[in-house]
Design a protein around this nucleic acid. Sequence first.
DNA 1: GCCAACGTTGGC
DNA 2: GCCAACGTTGGC
Length: 148
Amino acid sequence: MKSEPDAYSIDDLARDGVEPWDGIRNYQARNLMRDEMSVGDRVLFYHSNAKPPGVVGIAEIASSAYPDPTQFDPDSAYFDDSSSPDDPRWLLVDVRYVSHLERIVGLPEIKDDPALADMVLVKRSRLSVQPVSAEEFDHIVALGGSVA
DNA sequence: GCCAACGTTGGC
DNA sequence: GCCAACGTTGGC
């Protein structure tokens, strides 16, 4: 899962513990949260639009998908007036902090690693929630160093 | 700041 | 249903 650290960083998640992952406004990302995530699933936390961009930590899914309240809030940047409470268009999941990696695994390193060539991040980078295989997950954690 | 790659919108 | 115009993402 990607986040711009200026908006919400791994340090913010470490401080907050659990955070509703609001603001996802992409159908593919929504469907992944709805259909492919279970409580306890591990998450790679990725800093996008960062210097450097890369995987910075580990989180886990702390809830199943439920309606994102910001879509109904006219004062929110994520407000969507074509969504109704009867039939919510946008969902979110709660995300819980697990750990930082010992070092950032940067995007260039990921792109250059043959074991990671099939990652969605490499093949189709512009998606804020992406599936990661168990092998890819373990490989990146091994590169970055697991703190726990 | 630039721009490539997508995703969405809306006229027809 | 097609597709042009437009908006967003995010690396560089």
